[in-house]
Design a protein around this nucleic acid. Structure first.
Lengths: 345, 345
DNA sequence: CACGGGATTGGGAGCGCTCCCAATCCGTTC
DNA sequence: GAACGGATTGGGAGCGCTCCCAATCCCGTG
């Protein structure tokens, strides 16, 4: 208010510096720095004086200056392939972000959100990360051929994946127990007397998709299900539609479908309805994700819930750990999934 | 690869500096800086030498050092009240982010995502922004009593709102033409012969909610609809459920409902079904947002579409403009909404 | 061939902070 | 009362960059 009038050169230039605080408190720069950073070895008297000066001046440390000398940036990047924000069940995106934010809330880490859409942007991102402009990276929806994880490993940059690339993933990751989720879903269908259970898979270059397919197979025990009960899709609704048509053409006798995502399941339900089949009367349907879609289909859909927000939170915490303790061995965390039974099964 | 082994002190410390580039190119620091920043007054020969050196060394400017002297941060914040990420129709969130990212893609601005959940965090955010740690701010879902916009104005910090606080909003904003959208929706219901059209509103401390209610009223022309056809809710499904029950109790004769969000409309449809009323046979329903929910209700829901991704993109571009040209007067952009007719009306 | 002036160039100063070491302080101990 | 040692403190150096000015270069002109 009492500051100089606006203007590009002036805006914000009135911020007090460490030096100003030191002068006001009648101490040296070092002491102020120690107080600000909570370092030990400051007398109670000095600390009080500094804190008073900080409050009076409204001092806030200049991050750039600090970064310049410590080369910590106090920020982490959350990298999301742009395509996933469209394909994957909608709440996935917001839940992840919410979880990550929550995990970071107590620290003063900033969250950089990076959506990667093209290969060109992918390269730019690689350059960006190589330039050490964040302290760590969170990576979700990693495809098997994604070069980014390997790059991060080579850079020795703290990183946590949301979902692993394979079961031999070297980097730290958090993932939901997709295989168990799928198995439980299919067991539930079996328990309801279904015997010819088809499945619609996600893209098999993603471990989540493979794991869910595995779970589907595991549920069938020794007798692995007929191969013509398996149709491949890509997590989209259209993909679900196509796959369901295929399945219906191949096996008009099927009595249940387990889709590896709600959105695909919703597509499947459309096709079933168009084909004059009733859900769950003729064909039971189970999805995966327990997204908002599942609650609003007709009938409401049974689905496997994965704790996405918790995943995000855990990822953030693990990353903070890795940043704080660079030597730490990589950790792998598996979160449980659960079946939410509704009316489609 | 040929670098020193890992360890906190070493990691990344091998990055070449401006000085190194200058030495290699056989020029002074100033010249390198000019080349890097595209400033004029560099001979072709010098430029070539510098570019070669940059390529050979893989030089990337140190952002912190630059920020320290220019006090530009090359980053903008997108601030979202956390509650909105739950309440508002799901795709809103991802679409906004996608749009903003797209708008920023060509620049090398970084996007900071800030979810504000508590009042305490709100204050921390205020401090954060006051500390000039971003070049500009994007604010979505602004409530009338939100102190943030005013703070930004006072700080003279470039800012663009997604949705205005009132029709006298001084800050720059982008918003969808909610009033028209609502009007068109209700006109559509009138055209289908509906005469007792109820509405479920959002929280009236938000301009979007007020505007949609206005549109509902405008559509009725001179004869404003009976007040008992208006029920207030909060954009949540539960709110929609409650409001619909209320309406049904007050006006069992209603033949249509216009809800100010898809999610509320979905809640309303549940109640109607439970009450034994058919949609659209007995009661037509129209939502707002054209979210993923609308496509999956039973029957699929007619809804008003707003171009959210475009909003995000426009917001980003406007913000970049304001940052580049600090004197610029605030601008207000209105984007058109359109009715997507499905089977609920 | 000397001169003037615009184009180009180099590098000092300084942004605000942390790190670190030498200096100072103060309570004990003998 | 002097010496001793741990606790505290101050402030120089330097992080990598931009800004800016003085110095230099180079060309056309007289």
């Amino acid at each position: 208010m009492s500051r100089v009038a606006k203007g590009p050169a002036v805006r914000g230039s009135a911020r007090p510096t460490l030096e100003a605080v030191a002068a006001r408190a009648g101490v040296g720069r070092g002491t102020v720095s120690r107080v600000v950073n909570g370092s030990p070895g400051v007398s109670a008297k000095a600390r009080a004086a500094v804190e008073k000066a900080i409050a009076e001046l409204g001092y806030v440390p200049n991050r750039a200056a600090r970064t310049l000398v410590t080369s910590r940036t106090d920020s982490v990047a959350l990298v999301i392939p742009e395509a996933e924000t469209r394909l994957v069940a909608e709440p996935y995106f917001s839940d992840t972000i919410r979880g990550v934010t929550a995990g970071l809330a107590e620290t003063d880490m900033q969250l950089l959100l990076i959506l990667v859409r093209t290969a060109k942007e992918r390269e730019r991102l690689a350059a960006y990360l190589s330039a050490q402009r964040v302290d760590g990276v969170l990576l979700v929806s990693v495809h098997a051929d994604d070069p980014l994880p390997t790059l991060l490993e080579k850079l020795d940059m703290p990183a946590v994946l949301g979902g692993r690339r394979s079961d031999r993933e070297p980097l730290s990751y958090v993932h939901a127990d997709n295989a168990s989720g799928a198995r439980i879903a299919v067991e539930h269908l079996l328990a309801r007397g279904r015997r010819r259970i088809a499945t619609i898979t996600g893209p098999l270059d993603m471990e989540v998709a493979r794991a869910r397919l595995d779970g589907y197979r595991t549920a069938h025990g020794g007798t692995s299900p007929a191969e013509d009960l398996v149709a491949h899709a890509d997590f989209t609704e259209e993909g679900g539609v196509r796959a369901m048509r295929e399945l219906l053409a191949r096996r008009p006798d099927l009595d249940a479908v387990f889709a590896a995502s709600d959105v695909m399941a919703a597509g499947a339900m459309q096709v079933l309805r168009e084909a004059g089949l009733r859900v769950p009367g003729d064909v039971a349907v189970v999805g995966f994700d327990d997204s908002i879609v599942a609650r609003h289909t007709d009938p409401p859909m049974t689905s496997v819930r994965q704790p996405i927000e918790e995943m995000g939170r855990t990822m953030a915490q693990m990353l903070l750990d890795e940043i704080a303790h660079p030597g730490l061995p990589h950790r792998h965390v598996v979160l449980v999934t659960e079946l939410v039974v509704r009316e489609s099964s």
